[in-house]
Amino acid sequence: MKINIDKDGDVFICRLKGEITFSNSPELRKSFIKLIDEQARKLILDLEKVTYMDSSGLATLVEILQKLKSSGGQLKLANLQEMVKSVFEITKLEQMFEFYPEARQAVESFK
């Protein structure tokens, strides 16, 4: 799993590449908790290059969302591959997250 972070004003655009699984979810969680602790409040996760996500990946994103919300922040997800999106749909987590077809649109929604 690779994470590239760009900033557009106060919006953090995090581009993830690879698979989000039980083996790397703790590491991913740690990276984002650190980012939130460093005062990031507007986060976009661009999941275009995320090819697989299991229930521990979902749990990690739910935790990041909850932490951001409790700190007055927002999390938006962009560019999900069809099968990864289906995991959100089946678990009804699509109701909890905001989805955008592209990161650019997610950035615009913050403005």
Binding site: D54, L58, V62, T91, K92
Partner: peptide, 8 residues
């Protein structure tokens, strides 16, 4: 829905 476990 807000829980971190139980989806597997």
């Amino acid at each position: 829905i807000n829980k971190l476990t139980g989806r597997g």
